[in-house]
C-alpha cells in the first residue's frame, strides 16, 4: 500500500515534468497563459481606465481582478492538454504501464497551477511597474498566494474534468471559454454596482466576485473575513466537483 502510494507520487512528478515541457514548448499556451493577462492589463489601464470611476487608482482596483483572469486564461491550455492525452494513443501506454489515473490527472492540475503562478508573478511585476501600489503586509501577501493557489487548484480540477468530457481537443478548448469569460461578469473590471440590474445580480452571486473581493481586501491590507469564507467555500466546492467528475469521466473513457 505504502509503496503503491510512493509510486503514484513519483509518477505524478514524472507527469508534471512532461506537462511542463509541453507548456513551455507550445507558444500558444505560453501566450494565452502569461502574455494575454498582461495585454489585458495594459488595455484596461491605458484605454479604459479613465472611463471607470472606482474611487481609487484604477490600477489598484483592477490588478486583483486580473489576477483571477490570469488564472482563467491558463485553463484552456490545460483542458486541451488533458483531452489530447485521452484522444491520442499515449493514454493506453500509460494504462498498460500501470500509471495511475491520479498521477496522470494530478500532473495536469499541478502543471496548470505552476503556469498560473508564473503568469501571476509576471502580471504583478508589470502592474508594479505601472504604478500598482498595494498596501498588503507580508501576511496579506501570503493570503493572496494562498487564495491564488486554492483557486488555481480548484479551477484546475474543473478544467481537467472539462477536458476529459470533451470529444476532441478543439471542443475541450471551447469548453474552457466560459471560465475565461466569467471574470468579465464579476467585479474584476468594474464594481458590480456599476452594472445593469440583471448583470449586477449575476455578478454579485457568482463565485469569482467573493474571490476577487478577498484578494482586493488582502492587497489593500484590509481583508474581509466574510468574503474570504465564501471564497474558500466556493473553491473547495469547485475542486471537489471537478475532482469527482474527473475521476468518473476518466474511468468511463476506456
Amino acid at each position: 500500500m505504502n509503496t503503491q502510494r510512493m509510486r503514484t507520487k513519483s509518477h505524478a512528478l514524472v507527469m508534471l515534468r512532461r506537462n511542463s515541457k509541453h507548456i513551455t514548448r507550445n507558444p500558444t499556451s505560453v501566450f494565452n497563459a502569461v502574455l494575454m493577462p498582461i495585454i489585458i492589463l495594459l488595455m484596461f489601464v491605458y484605454m479604459f481606465g479613465d472611463a471607470f470611476d472606482v474611487g481609487v487608482d484604477y490600477i489598484d482596483y483592477v490588478t486583483p481582478g486580473l489576477l483571477l483572469l490570469a488564472v482563467c486564461y491558463g485553463l484552456s491550455g490545460a483542458a486541451v492538454a488533458v483531452n489530447s492525452d485521452m484522444t491520442k494513443g499515449i493514454i493506453n501506454r500509460f494504462k498498460v504501464m500501470d500509471v495511475s489515473r491520479g498521477a496522470v490527472l494530478t500532473g495536469h492540475v499541478i502543471a496548470s497551477l505552476v503556469t498560473n503562478l508564473v503568469a501571476i508573478a509576471a502580471l504583478i511585476g508589470v502592474a508594479l511597474l505601472l504604478g500598482f501600489d498595494p498596501s498588503a503586509s507580508l501576511l496579506d501577501w501570503l493570503g493572496v498566494v494562498g487564495m491564488v493557489v486554492l483557486l488555481g487548484f480548484a479551477a484546475g480540477w474543473l478544467t481537467v474534468a472539462l477536458g476529459l468530457a470533451a470529444k476532441s481537443p478543439e471542443t475541450a478548448g471551447m469548453a474552457a471559454v466560459p471560465l475565461v469569460m466569467l471574470p468579465f461578469f464579476s467585479s474584476a473590471i468594474v464594481p458590480a454596482e456599476m452594472m445593469g440590474q440583471g448583470l449586477r445580480q449575476f455578478a454579485e452571486y457568482q463565485p469569482f466576485t467573493p474571490i476577487i473581493e478577498t484578494m482586493r481586501g488582502l492587497l489593500e491590507g484590509a481583508p474581509d473575513s466574510g468574503d474570504a469564507i465564501v471564497a474558500v467555500a466556493w473553491c473547495v466546492g469547485i475542486a471537489l466537483v471537478g475532482y469527482v467528475w474527473s475521476l468518473s469521466t476518466f474511468q468511463k473513457r476506456a
Partner: peptide
C-alpha cells in the same frame, strides 16, 4: 497500439 502512442511534443 494501432496508432502511434508517442508524445509528439
Amino acid at each position: 497500439g494501432q496508432f502511434a502512442a508517442v508524445d509528439e511534443l
